[in-house]
Each structure stands twice: as structure tokens, then as C-alpha cells.
């Protein structure tokens, strides 16, 4: 049995890995996105993400060509708003934590978990019966809910320079709003826009073709 396992193992590619966990300065990202929240809601989001920890793995394969993979752990903060037609406008503020997977200098992805609040303000006038039985108007009336969600973003570099890079970002998201009628209201969103890297990278972000 051991022989079989060893033989199978030898058929696989030979690879040696080295992992470096770094606390190095990394740039912040600023992003601005338009949002479509299914169905019928439109809005925008602006935010920033700041890396606080990076993990770079150098891998040497049997062809002796080194390849590296890079992960940045980051925190994020964002705010925005969206409007659902004939219903309400809302302001969303949330904070998140996530991982950025750097595939190459031209492309990276991000997975993040967000926690926040959303404040709705209803369309049109809002009426309420007061204690005397008269109808009164409520100004800017709405509700506040908590939100929890996951996002996965795809980022493609727009130009070839190595500093002040602009990326196009496409970000599907799923999130829940609660307590909504004593339960959770699920949402699905698609966001698209630009992601701007503030300063030149102090670590590699190596172009895989050059590595």
C-alpha cells in the first residue's frame, strides 16, 4: 500500500513552497461603484480598503521557474445609497474585513465580509395617526436595519503603469437586512465601477510573466 501511495506521489509535480508573512506597508484602495440591487433598486457606493497583513508564497516547481502567490488581508469601510422605485431611498454604511488574492499585476480578486446599517426613507409623504386621532405627516420617516453580507470582487487593471493604478471592479454581493418584519430580508446586488490604488506598491505585486 505504501509503495502504491509513494508511486502516485512521485507522479505529481515536484514543488517546494516558502511562505512569508509580512507586515509591510501596502497601499490603500479607493473605489466608487454603481449598484444594481435586484430588483429595481439603483444606487452607488464609495469606499476604501486598507491592507493590514500580507502573505506571499514563493513556489518552485520542477521546471525551476519560481511562481508566487500573494494574499492581502484588508479592512474596508464604505457608504452609499440606493433607491427602490416607488418605495424608498436608503443610506448604507458598513465596515468589512476581507482577503485580496493577487493573481498578477493586472488582475486581483477580493472576498470580504461586511457588517453595517441601512437607513430607509420612504418615497412620498408618510402619514401617522396622532394620539388625538388626527393625521399628521412624518418628515424623512424610515427605518434602520442591520446588514450583513459577503462580496466577491473582480479587478482588472486599466493601464500599464505601476503606480496610481486604476482598476475596473465588478462586484457581486449578497446581503441580508434585519430585523425586517421580524425576519431577514435577502438581497442580491451587482456593483461595477473603478478601484483606485493610492500609491505605488512597496512590495512586489509581481507581474507573473516576469517572475
Amino acid at each position: 500500500m505504501k509503495t502504491v501511495l509513494l508511486s502516485a506521489w512521485l507522479l505529481l509535480s515536484v514543488m517546494a513552497s516558502a511562505q512569508d508573512s509580512l507586515h509591510i506597508y501596502r497601499p490603500a484602495f479607493l473605489y466608487g461603484l454603481t449598484t444594481y440591487n435586484f430588483p429595481w433598486s439603483y444606487g452607488f457606493t464609495i469606499g476604501t480598503s486598507i491592507s493590514f497583513h500580507s502573505i506571499i508564497k514563493e513556489k518552485k516547481y520542477k521546471d525551476f521557474k519560481p511562481r508566487s502567490s500573494e494574499k492581502d488581508e484588508f479592512i474596508s469601510a464604505e457608504s452609499g445609497g440606493y433607491r427602490r422605485r416607488f418605495a424608498y431611498a436608503s443610506i448604507v454604511v458598513n465596515a468589512g474585513i476581507g482577503i485580496r488574492y493577487v493573481k498578477s499585476a493586472k488582475y486581483f480578486t477580493e472576498l470580504s465580509f461586511n457588517q453595517g446599517i441601512v437607513r430607509t426613507m420612504y418615497d412620498g409623504k408618510v402619514y401617522e395617526l396622532d394620539q388625538d386621532g388626527n393625521i399628521k405627516e412624518r418628515i424623512l420617516f424610515g427605518r434602520t436595519y442591520l446588514t450583513t453580507g459577503f462580496t466577491y470582487s473582480l479587478n482588472w487593471r486599466l493601464n500599464n503603469r505601476n503606480s496610481n493604478l486604476w482598476f475596473i471592479q465588478l462586484k457581486p454581493a449578497t446581503w441580508i437586512q434585519y430585523p425586517y418584519n421580524s425576519f431577514l430580508k435577502p438581497h442580491m446586488s451587482l456593483q461595477a465601477g473603478v478601484n483606485y490604488r493610492l500609491k505605488k506598491h512597496s512590495s512586489s505585486y509581481p507581474d507573473k510573466s516576469q517572475a
Partner: peptide, 29 residues
């Protein structure tokens, strides 16, 4: 500009009687 865009778009005020009304109001109770 963006915040202005959001909030100017969110109000469908009652503007009187119409032959083709399409308006919304809310009642909280």
C-alpha cells in the same frame, strides 16, 4: 452631487388630482 441626485430622486410628492396619477404615500401604524 451624488447625494443630491439620490435625494432629489426619492420624493414623489402629491401634486394634486390628475387624470393619470402614479404616486405613492405611506402610512405608519
Amino acid at each position: 452631487f451624488l447625494l443630491g441626485l439620490l435625494f432629489t430622486g426619492c420624493k414623489k410628492e402629491f401634486t394634486g388630482l390628475s387624470t393619470n396619477a402614479n404616486e405613492i404615500f405611506w402610512v405608519t401604524n
